[in-house]
Amino acid sequence: MNAVSDVDRERAVELVQQAYADGRLDPAELERRLERALTATSAHELEPVVADLPDEVVLITTTGGRVTRAGDWQVPRRLRIESEYGGVRLDLSRAHVPYTRIDVELRLGYGSATIILPAGASADTDGVRTAWGRVTCKAAGRPRPGELHVKVTGQMPYGRLTIRAARG
């Protein structure tokens, strides 16, 4: 289980407060969710507090450049990458992932993508559409309790998507 950092807890509190300000939560629900967010000790406990609330999609765009994220980076709950010709490499094996599920949307014209998962993680690629491309997923397809699950969607007419576990 991933311990909850102060940053993760603060982000959850912000999402709950914003939902209240937007009129999506009544005062009683606000109080209940804030209490759960502030007392959560693991990502597994924190995730349900904000799971049904809209959160920001982190958007990365490039025309022909390569998008690479590796090492100790903060993985957002929702990530969309758009590129006409560039490639994508997302290495989640040493990243900080405060969620048990993340959504990755790929919109790649001619580029290919590789997603490297930490041990025990699973992935669902059923939402990826290709024309002349290929999707290869060497990870489990069903979510495992308490483990990271990556849902990948998008369009890759001519690109390839490879999902695999980290080596070594």
Rank of each mutant, 00 (worst) to 15 (best):
R107G: 13
T63M: 14
L92V: 05
P54M: 09
G120A: 12
T61N: 14
A95D: 03
A119W: 13
V88I: 07
I102Q: 01
C137M: 07
G159H: 02
H96M: 11
D91K: 02
A113P: 08
G146E: 02
H96K: 13
A119L: 14
R107H: 14
V57A: 04
R94Q: 14
P157F: 11
D72V: 13
A139T: 06
P98I: 06
L108P: 01
K151R: 15
Y99K: 04
R107D: 12
L117N: 08
L90G: 06
A113D: 05
L90W: 02
T61G: 15
A140T: 05
E82G: 10
T114W: 08
L53K: 04
L148E: 07
G64V: 03
I115T: 03
G146Y: 04
T136M: 13
G146V: 02
W73S: 01
Y85N: 13
R80E: 12
T63Q: 11
D103Y: 10
R89C: 09
W132L: 14
H149Y: 02
T62C: 04
R77E: 09
P118E: 13
R144C: 12
V128Q: 00
V152L: 07
A139L: 09
L53Y: 06
L92I: 07
E84N: 15
V104H: 01
G133V: 03
M156P: 04
L92G: 07
I81Q: 03
C137L: 05
G87N: 08
V135K: 04
G111C: 09
A131Q: 13
R77Y: 08
D91G: 06
L117P: 08
E56F: 09
P145I: 09
L106N: 00
Y158G: 11
G87F: 05
G87P: 04
R66I: 15
D124R: 01
D55F: 06
